[in-house]
């Protein structure tokens, strides 16, 4: 498998920059699987990212055009590139902090315009790169380096946010659901319009160790246990539901 994907990796790239057990490394491969399944032409693909660990998923590793921008601004750069050259297939891959905190305004406006951008938000529910500070996606009660007593605020539901703003393809999957996630990325690549996939991606280094999920495999197991499809959530009590993460396609 690794061999088949090698052609999608920029010559000169040696290894991934991620910590052991980081979900971003898994996502990096899954996106390429979807691209390979569809035999996308990498010479026409532009990958735009912001700043953060997640922003390194495409840049410089993917062997198309990659544009590693400023913290929060990936969508604005992508909008300019896509509008000027509509032949480009423009995919934005970036973190939850990048796309929804500092870049939150660009996110809702890009969704509203419904310009053909394919956005993958690698959500580790924390600022990984800068040392595990609270994010706009951190669950209530979770410990971070800036919320030692537990996060007092509600997180964004990113899928509802972009759907409300006007996105035309919306889904959420975890890196622990590789088959569904690849399917979803393929649908996104074929969709015309603003499409958004929130991908739950474990950050053992900054999130796990502060929230009693010390080993990478514990984080993965936790996600496998918690991520369920909407159908599976039917009949659960409020309380049971609250600790689950509902995944699936919400708008297609």
């Amino acid at each position: 498998m690794a061999r088949a994907l090698a052609k999608y990796i920029r010559p000169g790239v040696k290894d991934t920059p991620f910590c052991p057990g980081c979900g971003h490394g898994i996502l990096m491969g899954l996106i390429l699987r979807a691209i390979d399944d569809l035999k996308m032409d990498m010479k026409r693909m532009l990958f735009v990212s912001g700043i953060g660990c997640a922003a390194w998923i495409p840049s410089p590793h993917y062997n198309g055009d990659t544009l590693h921008t400023l913290h929060g601004r990936a969508l604005a750069f992508a909008t300019g590139a896509k509008l000027f050259n509509p032949d480009l297939c423009v995919m934005v891959v970036s973190g939850d902090g990048d796309l929804s905190s500092i870049g939150g305004n660009h996110l809702i406006h890009a969704a509203r315009r419904n310009i053909d951008l394919k956005v993958i938000c690698a959500n580790n529910m924390i600022y990984g790169m800068t040392g595990g500070q609270v994010a706009s996606t951190t669950p209530r009660g979770s410990k971070t380096s800036t919320t030692g007593e537990g996060n007092p605020y509600h997180p964004f539901d990113l899928c509802k946010l972009v759907e409300g703003a006007g996105a035309t393809y919306v889904a959420r999957f975890s890196v622990t659901q590789p088959v569904s996630l690849i399917q979803s990325i393929k649908k996104m690549l074929l969709h015309k319009g603003f499409s958004f996939i929130e991908v739950l991606s474990p950050c053992p280094t900054q999130f796990g160790r502060r929230n009693r999920l010390d080993r990478p495999d514990e984080m993965v197991k936790d996600l496998i246990r918690r991520c369920i499809l909407e159908e599976e959530a039917e009949g659960l009590t409020e309380e049971q539901r609250a600790e689950k993460i509902i995944t699936g396609e919400f708008l297609s």
């Binding site: 544009l67 750069f77 300019g80 590139a81 509008l83």
Partner: peptide
Amino acid sequence: MEDEIASICAVLGASWAG
């Protein structure tokens, strides 16, 4: 665009697109 930050960034994205 939605603000001046987005404006300059879109300009830069377009510039790299040619």
